[in-house]
Simulated scan of single mutants.
Amino acid sequence: MGNVVALEEFRRALDQREERGPTLPRPEIRGADIWGRDYTKLEAVVFGLLKVREIAAYHAALRAARHTDRSDRQEFDSLCLNALEAAYRVEDIGPARLKAAIKPLKERLLDAMTEDNKRDMAWALVLVDLIEKSPTK
């Protein structure tokens, strides 16, 4: 009878693991990749925002696995797209619009920062700052 109970516990554990969904790999953050780019170019802005999104998604998945509250990933993606559009059109609409588009992204990253993820989130904030404060052509 002990084997049957253990088998049922094993099945329950498998079901709970499947409910959490796939785990994301830890984002690879290298200073050379971040500091070695020219953030006045759109390619570097895309890299930066995708890296910020990757970092935020990883830590949101960890938080959701611990607490069961699901963060609104679509809202964060929307903030990243708004920042990308503002960076793309910075010559037309000016740097003030870029700063306005970056501000809610920074606030969201700061709200998500904890003692456990502060190193990664600090890198994400550095990326966002580099995008915001890089001089325009």
Rank of each mutant, 00 (worst) to 15 (best):
D38F: 09
A56H: 05
V46N: 02
K118T: 07
F47E: 08
R12H: 09
D33Y: 07
A13I: 00
F10P: 00
G31N: 13
V52F: 10
R53G: 13
I55F: 10
D38W: 10
V46K: 08
M113T: 15
D15F: 02
C80H: 04
E85I: 05
L98V: 04
L98P: 02
R37D: 14
R66T: 12
P104V: 05
P27M: 03
A96W: 04
D72C: 09
R108S: 11
P27G: 03
I93V: 07
I102V: 15
K41Q: 15
T40V: 06
Q16T: 01
R12F: 04
A32W: 07
P135W: 02
R97S: 07
A122I: 01
V126L: 14
S71T: 04
L62E: 15
M1Y: 01
G31C: 09
A100F: 00
L105H: 10
A6I: 05
A6R: 10
A83I: 04
V45R: 13
A65M: 08
R12G: 07
R53T: 10
I34N: 07
K118Y: 04
A100D: 09
A6P: 01
A61I: 00
D92A: 12
N3W: 01
E91A: 11
R37M: 15
I55H: 10
S78E: 08
L84N: 01
Q74S: 12
R17M: 05
L62M: 12
R53C: 12
G36W: 14
M1V: 02
R66A: 15
R30A: 12
E107L: 09
Q16C: 00
P22F: 03
K99R: 13
L109E: 08
L49Y: 11
L105M: 14
G36P: 13
M113E: 07
C80Q: 03
V128C: 14
Y88Q: 09
A65N: 12
S71N: 03
E9Y: 03
K133W: 15
E115V: 04
P104L: 05
I29W: 11
S71V: 02
E43H: 11
R73V: 14
E85N: 06
R12V: 10
A101W: 05
L130A: 15
T114H: 02
K106S: 06
G31Q: 14
E115A: 06
Q74N: 09
R119C: 00
V45G: 06
G2N: 13
L42M: 13
A44Y: 12
D120V: 03
Q16N: 02
R108T: 10
V4Y: 01
P27V: 04
P22S: 07
A32V: 15
C80E: 03
K103D: 06
D116C: 00
I102G: 06
P25D: 08
A122Y: 07
K41P: 02
R11M: 07
L14F: 02
L62F: 03
N82A: 06
F76K: 05
L109R: 05
L24W: 00
E85P: 00
L79G: 02
L49I: 12
E85G: 03
E115C: 00
A44V: 08
L79F: 04
G94H: 05
R73Y: 09
E9S: 01
W35K: 13
D120N: 05
A101P: 05
A65T: 09
I34T: 10
L7A: 13
H67Y: 12
E132H: 13
D15C: 01
D92I: 08
T40R: 14
E85C: 03
T40Y: 06
R70N: 07
